[in-house]
Each structure stands twice: as structure tokens, then as C-alpha cells.
Design a protein around this nucleic acid. Structure first.
Length: 423
RNA sequence: GGAGACGUGGCCGAGUGGUCGAAGGCGCUCCCCUGCUAAGGGAGUAUGGGUCAUAAGCCCAUCGAGGGUUCGAAUCCCUUCGUCUCCGCCA
């Protein structure tokens, strides 16, 4: 959510930043509405003051038995109430328009974010590891999994349709092993506190992290009005909603291993094969709540925490920085981690790490005590550390052997219960 | 799922239609007193918003949230969320 006061003061900053994301100037419309709201508010408040005053006088008049005066005053109040109601309607209508407008506008990219229209303009930051050279043609993860009879898309389709999978045996175990491995590193080494949050949330929680109102179509909604979380970012970040945090408890670093549910509306035809794009997948999520002045450094730190998993698993990856055109709605700056997939001969996204500034904090009213009588909005950051399903895909493809077996990476061995090779 | 009770400021807790943004206590801040890690006295101590110089002042709203009744609501009514108790059910 955007700070209307800040827009009033520096509209050009907003229009410039939105232009970098390909948007038309917005502030003229916004400030116009804002002016209308405030003008009506003034009129309404004056009427309210008049009503309050007259009402008190009625009380006094009744006290001394002056019914005539009371009646006159009642007429006065009735007039004021008319004005209040009329203005109220006007204010509600205009405020709704204004809020809808503000809620649907994306966050401002930081100055140092590269300009660009789409993902082609994303910038490579660095590469780590060298893709392995195979002396055979590497197979796709789903071919490997199906051949092992531990990855079954057909069976999943019978009960749930497309974009679902049943993992079994050693591959199911590997999903669990990866999750435990990631959680252990993030909690024991990187200082994140483990959480088990709700997987079903109310719309206001999704509004807080900015999946709503714009991305309703990407969510699964239940008959009770709950939504299945598309990422634990929603649950973890909303832990601080409507609260005022003591400054010395910051930064808050939280992690959770949860399933994620995405309708994938609009991605029909994309990644239809295999486990890359599913309606349901597991993910270890990282969320940091920090003071504004710490968010840039925290962003770099969080990137390192996510990278650490790939390094330990010996998976080749690269770090890219998203350009303005590819930046997510709530983000001011985002790094993506892309892992090497031999079968596709390319790097594919496995983690996204974003600094949202105070954007989400405003939407959920999450503040910290900056000084006596001065509460400020926190900054929120989130990142995958990592997407478990895609990590499993990467392990299968990068550690496959010619006979279709999978060698378990050393780092994962302690979690695999003695299994060294899946065959 | 059934029956009932409750939801007030940082905390505890009064308040059942008017002068209540809200008594009192605790906590906290400042001052005074006190020759001292105590006691006492005094003052202050919510949030959001409008006006405005992002001052002072004035004004509006907020007693879980939303709506209603009323000239007037923390107080009455409805809806909703949450907490607690009993019964039922269940992993």
C-alpha cells in the first residue's frame, strides 16, 4: 500500500518509479480523489462538531426542563445529520475508488534496479559451480522418476487432475530429506526460527502480502472463504500484522516448511511436463522483519542463506537480479536463484528473494517502536530457501547416472537413512 | 455442532443511555522532597485523521470489528471475529 501523504509531497517520485515498470502517470488521478475525499471530510467533520455541540445542549436543556429549546436544537441536529450522511456516502464512494487505485499499484523499484521490459533484461550477477559434462544424454527428471517408479503423474491425475504428482519410496523420502536439510541449515546456522503456520488464511492476510486484490485468480479459495497459501511468505509475514514490535527484538527471522498451492491460471501450456510447475509443492520459506535502515543488508544476507543450500548440494546455479519489468508486484528489489537443469540445458528459477520495503507492512499495519511516540513501519523481506520440489528435480537431473539411478549428494546423506543411490 | 459468559487505554479494572477518551490502581516519564539502591508529594502518560508550517491550538473518529436504534451509545439491538466454561464429536 502506498503512503498517500508521501504521494502528496512527492508525486513525481511515484510517477517516475511507476513509469519504470511500464505504467502511465497515476498521481494526478490519485491526488484528485484525495482532494475530494478531504474536502468532503472537512464538511462532514464540521457537521459532526455541530451535532455534538447541539446534542450536549439538548442534554442541558432537558436537565432544566426547557423542552422548547430542546426541540429547536433537535431540528438543528437533524440538519447536521443530513450533512453527515450525505458526506459520508460521498467519502465512502471516493475513498473506495482511491483505495482500490492505491491497492492495485505496484511497489516502487529501488533506484539501483536495472530497467527493462521483461525477463530478457534481467541481469546476471554471478554463477557458481560448473555444469557437469555427461558422457551420455542426461534425462529429464520426470523420465528418471517414472522409470524408477517413484514419481507418478498418471495416478495423481486420476484423483486431482493435471499438475499433481505422487512421489513414493525413496523419492518421497528425498522430499522429506531435502526439507529437513534446508530447515536445519536455516535454523541452526542462519538464525531463522522455525514455525508451523496456518496453511489456510483469510483474504486480509493475502491483501497484506499483496497477493490480493490483483492476483485472486492465482489462488485456491475454500468454501469457507479461506485461501490456501501460495507461499509461507503469507503466513510468516502476517505474524507481525497489526502489531507494534519492540525495536530491540528486530530483526525477526522466521522460517517454515509448508505446502504451497497455486492455481497457475494463465500458465496453461507452460511446463506441462514434469514437476517444475505444480498446483502443490513444498517449500522452505524465509521471512525477515527488519528496521528500514537494515533491509538492504538483510536482503544480501538472505540471498546468501538461500545460496548456501545450493552450494552444499553441489548444484550449479546463477544469481540474477530482476529488472523493473519482471519485478513482482510487492517487491522493490528481487534476486532470483536459478539452478542448472541438464535436460533443459538451462538455468531454471528455484528461489526468489525480495525486499518489499514498507509496502507489505503498510498493508498489514506492522510497525516497530522507533522512539517514544514514534512508531514506524517495518521492512519485510522474503525468500525461498528453497523450493523443495524444484530442488528434488535438480538433484535428480544433476546427479543421475547412465543407468537411471541417482547418486545422493554428500550433504543429503545424513538425511537419507543410509540410502546412497536411488535405483 | 448445542448451551452460556465475556471482549474497555502498556497492564489490571470501574463504568447499563447524556457533562466518558473514559474513575481507580499498577507500570512508565518528568519535577519536588529525602544525605542516598527505600518511602512520600506533584504533574504527565492511547491511536488514527482533518486544519496547519510535518508548530501551537482547534476539530473529528476510535471502549474487538462492522452495521443499526436514538437528539445523544462503552452502555440498547443485529452481524461478525476472538476468548473462556459445560455438553457432544473428533485426529
Amino acid at each position: 500500500m502506498h503512503d498517500i501523504k508521501a504521494i502528496r509531497q512527492n508525486p513525481e517520485i511515484y510517477d517516475k518509479a511507476w513509469a519504470r515498470r511500464g505504467l502511465e502517470p497515476q498521481t494526478i488521478t490519485i491526488l484528485d480523489k484525495d482532494k475530494l475525499v478531504r474536502r468532503a471530510l472537512q464538511v462532514q467533520q464540521e457537521a459532526e462538531a455541530a451535532r455534538n455541540k447541539a446534542s450536549k445542549q439538548i442534554g442541558a436543556a432537558m436537565g432544566r426542563g426547557d423542552k422548547e429549546a430542546a426541540e429547536t436544537l433537535k431540528t438543528e441536529v437533524a440538519g447536521a445529520k443530513n450533512v453527515i450522511a450525505m458526506m459520508g456516502e460521498q467519502i465512502d464512494a471516493e475513498k473506495t475508488v482511491l483505495n482500490d487505485l492505491l491497492a492495485a499499484l505496484p511497489n516502487l523499484p529501488f533506484d539501483d534496479v536495472p530497467d527493462g521490459a521483461d525477463e530478457d533484461a534481467n541481469v546476471d550477477i554471478r554463477k557458481h559451480g560448473t555444469p557437469r559434462t555427461f558422457d551420455f544424454t542426461p534425462k529429464a527428471h520426470d523420465d528418471l522418476g517414472e522409470a524408477l517408479e517413484m514419481m507418478d503423474f498418471e495416478t495423481a491425475a486420476k484423483m486431482s487432475g493435471s499438475r499433481f504428482v505422487v512421489l513414493s519410496g525413496k523419492l518421497a523420502r528425498m522430499d522429506r530429506a531435502l526439507s529437513a536439510f534446508m530447515l536445519d541449515i536455516q535454523t541452526e546456522e542462519n538464525g531463522y526460527t522455525e514455525h508451523v503456520p496456518p496453511f489456510l488464511v483469510w483474504p486480509q492476510a493475502l491483501f497484506g502480502t499483496a497477493q490480493l486484490p490483483k492476483f485472486e485468480d492465482d489462488q485456491f479459495k475454500t468454501t469457507t472463504g479461506h485461501y490456501l497459501i501460495p507461499t509461507a511468505e503469507v503466513s510468516l509475514t502476517n505474524i507481525v500484522r497489526e502489531s507494534i514490535i519492540d525495536a530491540d527484538t528486530l530483526p525477526l527471522r522466521m522460517t517454515a516448511h509448508t505446502p504451497c498451492f497455486r492455481s497457475e491460471a494463465g500458465s496453461a501450456g507452460r511446463d506441462t511436463k514434469g514437476m517444475i510447475r505444480q498446483h502443490q509443492f513444498n517449500k522452505v520459506e524465509l521471512v525477515s522483519i527488519v528496521k528500514p535502515e537494515d533491509s538492504a543488508a538483510e536482503h544480501e544476507r538472505m540471498l546468501g542463506c538461500a545460496e548456501e543450500i545450493l552450494r552444499r548440494l553441489e548444484l550449479p546455479y546463477k544469481v540474477i537480479e530482476l529488472c523493473t519489468g519482471d519485478l513482482g508486484f510487492g517487491a522493490r528489489k528481487t534476486y532470483d536463484l536459478e539452478v542448472w537443469l541438464p535436460s533443459q540445458n538451462t538455468y531454471r528459477e528455484i528461489s526468489s528473494i525480495s525486499n518489499c520495503g514498507d509496502f507489505q507492512a503498510r498493508r498489514m499495519n506492522a510497525r516497530y517502536k522507533h522512539a517514544e511516540k514514534d512508531n514506524r513501519f517495518v521492512h519485510t523481506l522474503n525468500g525461498s530457501g528453497l523450493a523443495v520440489g524444484r530442488t528434488l528435480v535438480a538433484v535428480l537431473e544433476n546427479f543421475q547416472n547412465q543407468d537411471g539411478s541417482i547418486t545422493i549428494p554428500d550433504a543429503l546423506l545424513p538425511y537419507m537413512g543410509g540410502v546412497k543411490v536411488i535405483k
